[in-house]
């Protein structure tokens, strides 16, 4: 999928809550053996997907250096909506001062809701319907106590502002490719607090099949191979999957490492791929080409090819880099985690 006019990222912002739970704390309580990551970020008692989205959105606006009233569309991708009905997007729009001439909605496609929003923004900007559009992926991810998901389900998010490519564009998008099938590998029924999943079924027929499909499709359309990319970011439900899919597709470890934050943050669901991309933009140089491939259960993958521009190297890096959020942390124990995530009946 290519836009009629070239669209790029003019600003981005990330946010990761301060609390960290070591996976060893979870093993200590539930006796699990594996360690899919080291530690995960946990929202505080007064944080949720909306507050995370607002934080990320504010940093994105600052970095873009634009008047927020010029943002014509805001989409929040999340599966942790504080309200089942009432958009997160309106709260974000109000908080950054983008109201009232703005369209806003929430997206849901498991962990790829944020990249879905990317594509919508690209279309709106390219068509000239809006000057700028903002896509956010933010979650306070759910995982049932003792479930494998509990070891990784984390909180965080990132926001990206899209505009037509010009000299202020940090990175422009060469193309996008989506690969979607009906594959129920992970789901959460309405009014259920925790998702369920198909265990190993989430791997080969789900995560790997769809990402490989999207990335191969994108590279085919653009005529690129893995060697044409300096960085690759994949959805990061754990440390193993993105490394494995990179290997399957022929990307070297060096290309994925800068965007691989899951060992220290956990799986932030809709925030995961976006935080990875933000980490890469924090370090990328003009001319670098970045591959981004999300994965959303249910299932699908959106792949993008981005090229970094000169604007990246000026003062646009003033706002906190993802690494600052990764290093800003306080460790909590399982009992406080249980309280913060509402796992204790009160």
């Amino acid at each position: 999928m290519k836009t009629a006019k070239t669209v790029g990222i003019v600003g981005y912002g990330a946010y990761i809550p301060r609390n960290r739970l070591k996976v060893s704390e979870i093993s200590h309580v539930w006796g699990g053996g594996g360690a899919p990551i080291q530690e995960k970020a946990v929202a505080d008692i007064d944080e949720d997907a909306v507050t995370i989205a607002v934080e990320a959105a504010r940093y994105a606006v600052k970095r873009a250096g634009i008047d927020p009233r010029e943002i014509g569309a805001i989409y929040v991708g999340t599966e942790s909506k504080p309200y089942a009905v009432k958009p997160c997007g309106t709260i974000v729009a109000e908080a950054i001062g983008a109201t009232p001439c703005v369209t806003a909605a929430d997206y849901e496609f498991a962990c790829k809701a944020g990249t879905e929003a990317f594509q919508t923004c690209m279309g709106l900007v390219s068509s000239g319907m809006v000057k700028y559009a903002m896509a956010i992926g933010a979650d306070t991810a759910q995982g049932r106590p003792a479930d494998a998901l509990e070891y990784t389900a984390a909180c965080g998010g990132a926001a990206f502002i899209f505009g037509l490519k010009n000299h202020r564009t940090l990175a422009y998008i060469e193309g996008s490719y989506s690969y979607t099938t009906d594959t129920p590998d992970f789901w959460r029924r309405s009014r259920e607090p925790y998702p369920r999943h198909g265990s190993r079924f989430t791997g080969t027929p789900a995560y790997f099949h769809h990402i490989v499909g999207a990335v191969k499709g994108l590279m085919g359309e653009l005529g690129y191979g893995p060697e044409d990319f300096d960085y690759a970011v994949f959805h990061q439900p754990n440390t193993k999957f993105p490394i494995k899919v990179a290997k399957m597709l022929g990307f070297p470890m060096d290309a994925i490492k800068p965007g691989l934050i899951v060992p220290f943050v956990g799986n932030t669901y809709a925030g995961s791929t976006l935080l990875g991309l933000a980490s890469v933009l924090d370090v990328a140089n003009p001319g670098d080409r970045i591959l981004v491939a999300s994965y959303g259960s249910g299932a699908g993958s959106d792949a993008f090819s981005l090229v970094v521009q000169d604007a990246i190297s000026n003062d646009r890096r003033l706002d906190p880099a993802v690494s600052i959020f990764i290093n800003r942390k306080r460790y909590i124990d399982y009992s406080l985690y249980a309280r913060l995530r509402g796992k204790i009946l009160t």
Partner: peptide
């Protein structure tokens, strides 16, 4: 300044958001 939940009207009522402050991040 940061943006946080301030209070909520039980499990079914509205959630009030607003400013809180935090140590400066960077």
């Amino acid at each position: 300044a940061t943006f946080r939940r301030v209070r909520e009207d039980g499990p079914s009522g509205i959630i009030e958001y607003g400013y809180k402050f935090r140590p400066v991040i960077s």
